[in-house]
Amino acid sequence: MSFYESLLEQTSSERNYLLSAPIIRQAMSGQVSLPSYVAFLTEAYHHVKHTVPLLMACGARLPERLEWLREAIAEYIEEEYGHQEWILNDIRACASDADAVRGGTPQLATELMVSYVYDRIARHNPVSFFGMVTVLEGTSIALATQVAGVIQDKLQLPNQAFSYLTSHGSLDLEHIELLKSLMNRLDNDDDKAAVVHTAKVVYRLYGDVFRSLPLSSEE
């Protein structure tokens, strides 16, 4: 079994915790409201804006033995730069106040998730960052494109309100293949353990982000 396959196996219960969030079940069944979608985009903005800074922090702390991983991070930064602005554009297309979101503060669950990964990079092992990548990109592939279609059909929003979700559904398919290849090159047990542990915790914290979002009031 490859390390990436082992990573998915070891984090299955935590992944199920995330996917069982009530708002995800609602969205998949077509039970969704505009405030719920805008709240999702708001929290997405507050963690996505940290993607590049987290990548930079990780790359800066990697040891020389992982120079090949630092090279991949440099390419990843270029691809990820500015994606938080896509989210603000989606919020505007929902006729909501993107400037208020930019200047606002995240829910506690979002703040804790981001802070946790910064802490893992700084105090433990920078490779921990890829535990977060496993969670966010794996979840995106599982949900993004399908949920975007359900929400758009239900709320009759323009295509411009879904640039974040629709782009990441397809984009993250490429990123997952890259993630698999990078994780399967890891040959240090401490690095592997750091990724697994971080993924387990981030699945829980990201699940709490979804649980912090307002549910639709539909019956």
Results as ranks from 00 to 15, higher is better:
Leu41Phe: 07
Gly131Met: 04
Glu43Gly: 06
Gly169His: 03
Ser13Arg: 14
Gly207Gln: 10
Leu213Phe: 02
Asp99Lys: 14
Leu8Asp: 07
His124Tyr: 14
Leu143Arg: 05
Ser33Lys: 03
Phe40His: 10
Pro126Lys: 00
Pro106Glu: 09
Arg92Asn: 08
Thr42His: 08
His46Thr: 05
Asn159Phe: 15
Val147Ile: 14
Arg185Gln: 12
Val133Asp: 07
Ile77His: 03
His47Tyr: 15
Gly30Phe: 00
His197Arg: 02
Ala109Val: 05
Phe3Asn: 04
His50Gln: 11
Val32Glu: 04
Glu43Val: 08
Tyr116Pro: 00
Asp90Met: 03
Val52Glu: 02
His197Phe: 11
Leu66Tyr: 06
Asp208Gln: 03
Ile151Tyr: 04
Val48Thr: 05
Ile24Lys: 03
Arg204Ser: 13
Glu174Tyr: 15
Ile176Pro: 06
Ser6Ala: 12
Ala100Ser: 15
Tyr4His: 07
Arg123Met: 04
Tyr206Thr: 11
Leu178Ser: 10
Met56Asp: 05
Glu111His: 13
Gly131His: 00
Leu157Asn: 07
Gln160Ile: 12
Leu157Met: 10
Met1Val: 14
Ala39Trp: 10
Glu218Ala: 12
Val101Glu: 03
Tyr17His: 12
Val133Ile: 12
Glu177Ser: 09
Ala60Asp: 07
Phe40Met: 14
Asp187Tyr: 07
Gly103Thr: 09
Val150Ala: 04
Gln146Ser: 09
Arg204Gln: 15
Glu177Ile: 11
Ala122Thr: 08
Ser29Cys: 05
Ala148Asn: 01
Ile23Ser: 01
Ser12Thr: 12
Pro106Tyr: 04
Glu75Arg: 09
Gln31Asp: 09
Gln26Ser: 06
Glu137Ile: 02
His197Tyr: 08
Pro63His: 11
Ser36Leu: 13
Ala109Trp: 03
Phe40Lys: 06
Asn125Phe: 02
Met183Gly: 01
Gln107Ala: 13
Leu136Glu: 05
Thr51Glu: 05
Arg102Ser: 04
Glu111Val: 02
Val150Arg: 10
Ser96Pro: 13
Met183Asn: 00
Arg25Phe: 09
Gly169Arg: 04
Leu41Gly: 07
Leu186Thr: 02
